[in-house]
C-alpha cells in the first residue's frame, strides 16, 4: 500500500513539472480536449472526402444518363431499356451512399483539423 502511494505521489509531481516545461499540447492531450471520435486520420479523411465527392457527382451523372437511356453509357448497345433503368436507380442509390460517406469524412476531416 505504501509503495503505491509513494510512487504515485512522485509520478504526479514529475508530470506536473514536465507539463510546466513542455508545450501546451501535452497538457491539453491529458485533459482530453482533442478529437472525440478519431476514426480516421488527417490524410485518410481528406482522401475519402475527395473520392466521395467525385463518386457523388459522377454516379449522379451516370444515374441520370442510364435513366435517360442515353447512348453515351452504352455505345455497343448491349443493354435493354429496363436494365438501364434498373442500373440508373442503383446509381442514384450508390450516389446517396457516397453522399453519406462524404458527410462522414468531411466531419472527420474537420475534427482532425480543428484542434
Amino acid at each position: 500500500m505504501m509503495v503505491l502511494v509513494v510512487t504515485n505521489g512522485w509520478r504526479q509531481s514529475t508530470r506536473r513539472r514536465r507539463n510546466q516545461i513542455g508545450s501546451q499540447d501535452e497538457a491539453g492531450s491529458t485533459s482530453g480536449t482533442k478529437c472525440k471520435w478519431p476514426i480516421c486520420g488527417y490524410g485518410c479523411s481528406a482522401c475519402c472526402s475527395v473520392i466521395s465527392a467525385w463518386g457523388l457527382v459522377m454516379l449522379a451523372v451516370l444515374g441520370f444518363l442510364f435513366s435517360g437511356n442515353d447512348n453515351l453509357v452504352d455505345p455497343e448497345g448491349e443493354m435493354n431499356k429496363s436494365d438501364k433503368e434498373k442500373t440508373g436507380t442503383a446509381c442514384y442509390i450508390a450516389a446517396g451512399m457516397y453522399l453519406a460517406t462524404f458527410i462522414f469524412s468531411v466531419w472527420q476531416f474537420k475534427l482532425n483539423t480543428s484542434k
Binding site: 473520392i51 467525385w54 463518386g55 459522377m58 454516379l59 451516370l62 442510364f66 453509357v73 443493354m79 436494365d83 434498373k86 442500373t87 442503383a90 446509381c91 442509390i93 450508390a94 451512399m97 457516397y98
Partner: peptide, 19 residues
C-alpha cells in the same frame, strides 16, 4: 459494377475505379 445493377456493387466498383 454498373451492369450488375446493384447499388453496393456500384459503390465498391466506383472506389476501385477511382483509385
Amino acid at each position: 459494377g454498373l451492369k450488375a445493377g446493384s447499388a453496393p456493387l456500384i459503390f465498391a466498383a466506383f472506389t476501385v475505379w477511382a483509385l
